[in-house]
C-alpha cells in the first residue's frame, strides 16, 4: 500500500516491475536500465522520507503494514507467555501483556494492540483500550515488580475508548491510577511509542525512566483530526492541525517531553521490518542495562523529577502575598 505522498515512488516501482517483466518475456537486455531505475528510486525515497511533513509522519504512524506490539514481541523475544485479564471485569484485547525472554533476560512487556484485518480490528477495538485494559496493565506491572523484572511498554493507540461502559467503569480513574502508580514502580520502565500516542490513552502506560519514540510516530494531547474539528469545525484541516500541535518525535524531543528517538529504516518501520526489530531489540537491551545500574530509589526520584520539570511558565513576580 502506498500513501498519497508516496505516489512518485509507486510510479517508478511500477515502471521497474514492468521493465523486469519485459526482460523476463523477451531476450532484450535491460539490466542497465533496471540498474539506473533502481538508483533513481533509491534517491527519490531518500528525498521524500527525509523531508516528511508532520502530517505525513502521522500517516506513516498509521500505515496498515506497520509492525504492531505483537509483531515486535514475536520477532524480538525468544519466548513470550501472554497473561490475560484485569481480575475484575474482563480481558481487554486492546492491550496485551506478558512475560518475555530476550537473550536470556526476562521482561514484562505490555502494549496497545491493533488488529490486522477487519475482524481483528474490531476484536482489538482499533487499539482503543477500556478501563479494563489499563487495569490489566497495572496488574501486570505489579507482578513484574514483585519478581523484579524490567517493564517495557509499547504505545500505539488513537486514544482511550470513549464508550458508555468505559465511562461506567471509570476510564478517567483507571488512567489516572496507572499514571500515579507507574511513578512508584521499583523496576526499570521503558516506554516506546511505536505508532500513535494519543493523549491520556497513551500516557496511561507511558510513565517511564526512558520514554522513546520511533522516528515516524506522533504523541500529543489530541489527534490532528480532533484538533481540526475543534478549531475549524471540520476534519479537513488535519495537516494544519498536525503542524500546530508539533507532535512528531523530533518536536517532542526538542521540547524535552521524551528522552530519545529510535531511527526507522528508510520508508518507515514496515519498509524493512527485520532491521527495525533488530534495532529495537538492541535499544531495549542497552537501555535496560543502563537503567539497571541505577539504584531503584534513585530511578524513582529521577523519573518524578523528569516529569515534574515538564512545562513552560513565566513567573512575573516571585513573591507570595497575603490577600484580604
Amino acid at each position: 500500500m502506498y500513501l498519497d505522498f508516496e505516489k512518485p515512488i509507486q510510479d517508478l516501482e511500477g515502471k521497474l516491475a514492468e521493465m523486469k517483466q519485459i526482460a523476463d518475456d523477451s531476450d532484450v537486455d535491460v539490466s542497465q536500465e533496471v540498474k539506473s531505475l533502481e538508483e533513481k528510486i533509491k534517491t527519490l525515497k531518500k528525498d521524500i522520507y527525509s523531508n516528511l511533513t508532520r502530517w505525513q509522519k502521522v500517516q506513516l504512524s498509521r500505515h496498515p503494514d506497520r509492525p504492531y506490539t505483537l509483531d515486535y514481541i514475536e520477532n524480538i523475544c525468544d519466548q513470550f507467555i501472554e497473561l490475560h485479564g484485569d481480575r475484575v471485569v474482563k480481558d481487554d484485547k486492546a492491550i496485551v501483556g506478558g512475560f518475555a525472554e530476550i537473550d536470556g533476560n526476562s521482561f514484562m512487556i505490555i502494549g496497545h494492540q491493533k488488529g490486522k484485518n477487519t475482524k481483528m480490528r474490531q476484536v482489538r477495538n482499533f487499539g482503543m483500550a477500556n478501563p479494563d485494559g489499563y487495569r490489566k496493565a497495572l496488574r501486570l506491572m505489579r507482578v513484574a515488580e514483585k519478581f523484579n523484572k524490567p517493564i517495557i511498554t509499547f504505545i500505539d493507540t488513537p486514544g482511550a475508548y470513549c464508550g458508555l461502559e468505559a465511562e461506567e467503569r471509570g476510564q478517567g480513574e483507571a488512567i489516572a491510577r496507572n499514571i500515579k502508580e507507574m511513578f512508584m514502580l521499583k523496576v526499570p520502565v521503558i516506554c516506546i511509542i511505536i505508532g500513535e500516542g494519543a493523549s491520556g490513552g497513551a500516557l496511561g502506560i507511558a510513565i517511564g525512566d526512558k520514554v522513546l519514540m520511533l522516528e515516524n510516530t506522533w504523541y500529543s494531547v489530541i489527534s490532528p483530526e480532533s484538533c481540526s474539528s475543534i478549531l475549524w469545525r471540520t476534519w479537513e484541516h488535519k495537516e494544519r492541525a498536525a503542524e500546530a500541535l508539533k507532535l512528531t518525535a523530533e518536536d517532542m524531543l526538542k521540547f524535552k517531553l521524551i528522552d530519545g528517538i529510535v531511527k526507522e529504516p528508510l520508508g518507515g518501520a514496515h519498509a524493512d521490518r527485520e532491521s527495525m526489530y533488530k534495532k529495537l531489540k538492541k535499544v531495549i537491551l542497552d537501555t535496560t542495562a543502563a537503567l539497571q545500574k541505577v539504584d531503584p530509589e534513585q530511578r524513582i526520584s529521577d523519573r518524578i523529577d523528569k516529569f515534574s520539570a515538564m512545562g513552560v511558565v513565566e513567573d512575573l513576580a516571585p513573591a507570595a502575598e497575603i490577600t484580604e
Binding site: 489516572a176 499514571i179 500515579k180 502508580e181 511513578f183 512508584m184 493523549s199 491520556g200 500516557l203 510513565i207 504523541y219 500529543s220 494531547v221 489530541i222 484538533c227 475543534i230 478549531l231 500546530a244 500541535l245 508539533k246 507532535l247 518536536d251 517532542m252 521540547f255 517531553l257 523519573r303 518524578i304 516529569f307 515534574s308 515538564m310 512545562g311 513552560v312
Partner: peptide
C-alpha cells in the same frame, strides 16, 4: 480537560501532578 494549545506540554501536566500526588 487539557489545553489543546499547549499540546504535548498539556498532556505531561497529567503526569506531573500525579507524580506529586504520589509523593
Amino acid at each position: 480537560g487539557a489545553r489543546m494549545m499547549e499540546a504535548g506540554y498539556s498532556l505531561m501536566q497529567m503526569a506531573k501532578t500525579s507524580a506529586k500526588l504520589a509523593l
